[in-house]
């Protein structure tokens, strides 16, 4: 019991330090506020499930991004009438709370632009913006480094042209 509670503390500490990853990913893959809440919850639960097997050879952010993005792509592909993960909790409650009033308007605009990309492209651009190197992105996504570099260049151009139009 003590062991599991200490594991819980370690996990919450890790979440606290990396909560922005969950917020950004769920904001980019969830269409509406409710979807985002559900998605952030699903990500946290899957992280918690995978936490005992966390391989310390990988950076925490790499591990979190991998899980968060995998969960998000699967979540996106599910039917809209999907069953909620945490049925027994009120819909206004969320494991990750954020005050939308205080959200930067320009950031919302950035999210809207990135949101127009395909699921895997979105993942690549998030990882790039989060400062991951090409070799890290290659490991997380599962494509070659050359492919990552090509895709990033194309995506940058695409995003810039979307801005102009």
């Amino acid at each position: 019991m003590e062991k599991s509670s200490s594991l819980e503390e370690q996990f919450i500490d890790l979440l606290e330090k990396n909560k922005k990853i969950i917020y950004k990913v769920s904001n980019l893959y969830g269409e509406h506020t409710d979807d985002r809440k559900d998605l952030s919850q699903e990500i946290i639960l899957q992280l918690w499930k995978a936490f005992p097997n966390y391989d310390s050879r990988y950076a925490v952010s790499t591990w979190m991004h991998r899980i968060a993005l995998n969960v998000s792509i699967s979540f996106m592909r599910k039917e809209k009438t999907r069953k909620k993960t945490v049925d027994s909790y009120q819909s206004d409650q969320s494991l990750l709370n954020w005050d939308t009033q205080k959200e930067d308007e320009r950031l919302t605009q950035v999210y809207q632009i990135i949101n127009q990309l395909k699921p895997f492209d979105k993942a690549i651009i998030i990882l790039y913006l989060e400062g991951h190197k090409n070799n890290e992105i290659s490991t997380i996504v599962g494509i070659s480094e050359t492919n990552v570099a090509t895709k990033i260049n194309r995506l940058k151009k695409k995003i810039s042209s979307n801005f102009k139009s």
């Binding site: 979440l15 909560k19 946290i44 899957q46 918690w48 499930k49 409650q93 494991l95 709370n97 205080k102």
Partner: peptide, 22 residues
Amino acid sequence: SLETNLKINKAMFKEVSIQKVK
């Protein structure tokens, strides 16, 4: 700003984590 605005609902997590993760 995200660092300040985002909050982990620790109490809820403790309750949820006790449940078996579906």
